[in-house]
Measured scan of single mutants.
Amino acid sequence: ETGKELVLALYDYQEKSPREVTMKKGDILTLLNSTNKDWWKVEVNDRQGFVPAAYVKKL
């Protein structure tokens, strides 16, 4: 879809709370919100949640 910003997972991340999502290094995720410098909201496999901003980079 146009207008979607994507990020690349630089590291594996295992969710530690229900508000977070698990990702694997190399995953491409849809970026939903990056206003917080530490935690970015992403969508992966129809799930939305937060990942550490340092673990992903914008494509």
Rank of each mutant, 00 (worst) to 15 (best):
E1F: 06
E1K: 03
T2V: 14
T2N: 15
T2H: 14
T2K: 10
T2D: 13
T2Y: 15
G3Q: 14
G3F: 14
G3E: 14
G3I: 14
K4W: 10
K4A: 12
K4C: 12
K4S: 11
K4E: 09
K4N: 10
K4I: 13
K4F: 12
E5W: 13
E5M: 12
E5F: 10
L6S: 08
L6G: 03
L6M: 11
L6I: 08
V7H: 04
V7Y: 09
V7N: 00
V7T: 03
L8Q: 13
L8D: 01
A9V: 11
A9G: 03
A9W: 02
L10E: 04
L10H: 04
L10I: 11
Y11G: 05
Y11D: 07
Y11E: 09
Y11K: 13
D12A: 06
D12M: 03
Y13V: 01
Y13I: 01
Y13N: 01
Q14F: 15
Q14P: 06
E15W: 05
E15I: 06
K16N: 10
K16I: 07
K16Y: 05
S17Y: 07
S17L: 08
P18V: 11
P18S: 12
P18L: 09
R19Q: 13
R19S: 13
R19P: 06
R19W: 15
E20H: 06
E20I: 04
V21T: 05
V21F: 12
V21L: 15
V21S: 02
V21Q: 03
V21Y: 04
V21A: 06
V21G: 02
T22E: 04
T22F: 04
T22H: 04
T22C: 06
T22Y: 04
M23K: 00
M23Y: 02
M23L: 08
M23C: 06
M23S: 00
K24Y: 12
K24I: 08
K24F: 13
K25E: 07
K25P: 03
G26V: 00
G26E: 02
G26F: 05
G26A: 04
G26I: 01
G26S: 03
D27V: 05
D27N: 08
D27E: 12
D27C: 07
I28W: 05
I28Y: 06
I28P: 01
I28S: 03
L29G: 11
L29M: 14
T30P: 15
T30D: 05
T30K: 13
T30I: 15
T30S: 09
L31T: 01
L31H: 00
L31G: 01
L31Y: 02
L31Q: 01
L31E: 00
L32Y: 04
L32D: 01
L32R: 04
L32C: 07
N33D: 15
N33P: 03
N33M: 08
N33G: 06
N33H: 08
S34E: 15
S34H: 08
S34K: 08
S34G: 12
S34L: 05
T35E: 15
N36E: 11
N36D: 15
N36V: 05
N36P: 05
K37H: 12
K37V: 11
D38F: 15
D38P: 03
D38M: 13
D38H: 15
W39C: 06
W39L: 03
W40S: 02
W40H: 02
W40T: 03
K41R: 11
K41S: 07
K41Y: 15
V42M: 02
V42T: 01
V42R: 00
V42K: 00
V42N: 00
V42E: 00
E43P: 00
E43C: 11
E43F: 07
E43Y: 07
E43T: 07
V44M: 15
V44E: 04
V44N: 15
V44H: 15
V44T: 15
N45A: 11
N45M: 12
N45W: 09
N45V: 10
N45K: 12
D46A: 11
D46I: 07
D46H: 14
D46Q: 11
R47K: 12
R47I: 08
R47G: 04
Q48W: 08
Q48D: 06
G49A: 03
G49Y: 05
G49P: 00
G49E: 02
F50H: 05
F50Y: 15
F50S: 03
F50D: 04
V51E: 01
V51R: 01
V51Q: 00
V51I: 09
V51W: 00
P52N: 02
P52I: 02
P52M: 03
P52H: 02
P52T: 01
P52E: 02
A53L: 02
A53V: 06
A53D: 02
A53H: 03
A53S: 14
A54V: 10
A54F: 08
A54H: 13
A54G: 09
Y55L: 12
Y55S: 11
Y55V: 05
Y55W: 07
Y55R: 05
V56Q: 00
V56C: 13
K57T: 15
K57F: 10
K58W: 08
K58E: 07
K58P: 11
K58F: 09
K58N: 07
K58T: 08
K58Y: 09
L59V: 12
